[in-house]
Design a binder for these strands. Structure first.
Lengths: 197, 197
DNA sequence: CACAATTAGTTAATAGTGTTAACTAAATAT
DNA sequence: ATATTTAGTTAACACTATTAACTAATTGTG
């Protein structure tokens, strides 16, 4: 058999969509050439017509997941009043996201993006803009904002990673620890803000 | 050939040691049954005489790495005076460790430990004891200490993870951001401490 | 419309991974 | 001295990624 009808042929986006569906269903391990091909009903080599190789499939999928996460995040928090509380809500949104889609979260974390691609920096700048909004109460210089973004992201993503790795077996509710951490981050931001005056 | 002389036969620890050597040399991807077997000069199935399967090899290696990291950390910071500054030093030690042994760090992060094993909880308690020392200036309840430990670990490990994932391309020195974060964490801890009075 | 070019898929083949089963012979225990 | 244990072996199977050669349907152009 040769090339099928146009309407039945696949696009790069279809492949990525299938990859994400697989991740949701079977976890991050489903993100591979064979698994995705099987899910699409094609043979593994056909994947290479749409993406350079397996690593490219992983990167492209991770980038798409980051973008979806960001837009979903913005949509969810769009209506809320812009207060410092927004940071806490960002924290909760992210943790809920990770609980709802553990596979997606794992992929977003462990697939390392190449700085050569333009997408990662776009994502970072979007995140930066979003945080600037959420932290408009504090007077922060541009560099301080970067520092704060790095700290907030590190804390949130680190916390969830540790939680998902099964390292919170000790007797203390992760929910409450998370709440304490988010509050702590706010006071840390306040301190950083004061340093600029 | 059959069983070799006792002195030439391998122990479980030898296998793990070879795995770590491979990780240091070729990165986290070297942590597999085949690669480790090749390094030991034996055939892959022989590994199963020492460890249940590939996943067990990964877990056992990760646990050993955690233990070594902890003892090395304690040794390095043993002589220093016990001040709040110790937390910053812990932060720097960990980041240096991750830079010196990126493969080890990756394995420690991405291999998810099972709560069934006793080792992980031992590790957690060691970390807890260490942090209690480092934070003896603050008056913290036991639960607060757990919260603080989770926050500090999340922030440090998250920061390094983001850095190693290549997500700090924006123009701002990661070193300085890290310094700001560690200082911020201290003020966050101070705030948490006040809540108990 | 017809013919050429493109291309999304195929099969075949290679190399790597993890794992199980059956076996072998050296070391150990009785 | 004999029996048992066991660290290794080989053989086999399943799965993964990847390349090369091919095929035929679609698309573009005279």
């Amino acid at each position: 058999m040769g090339r099928p009808k146009k309407e039945h042929s696949l696009s790069r986006q279809d492949v990525i969509a299938a990859a994400i569906a697989g991740i949701d269903q079977d976890g991050a391990a489903a993100l591979g050439v064979s698994r995705v091909a099987r899910r699409l009903g094609i043979k593994p080599p056909a994947i290479y017509k749409h993406l350079e190789n397996g690593a490219a499939l992983q990167r492209a999928t991770a980038i798409t997941l980051w973008e979806r996460y960001l837009t979903e995040c913005q949509q969810t928090l769009a209506d809320r009043p812009i207060t410092t509380d927004l940071l806490k809500q960002l924290g909760h949104f992210t943790r809920n996201f990770a609980k709802t889609y553990p596979g997606r979260y794992q992929v977003m974390m462990q697939v390392q993006l190449q700085p050569q691609d333009p997408e990662p920096s776009v994502i970072i700048h979007k995140l930066l803009a979003f945080l600037r909004q959420a932290l408009s109460d504090y007077t922060l210089t541009d560099t301080q904002l970067i520092d704060v973004m790095r700290m907030v992201n590190a804390a949130i993503y680190g916390f969830i990673a540790i939680e998902q790795a099964g390292l919170m077996t000790i007797e203390r509710s992760p929910d409450e620890s998370y709440e304490v951490m988010l509050a702590g981050l706010l006071s840390a931001i306040a301190t950083i803000s004061k340093n600029s005056e």
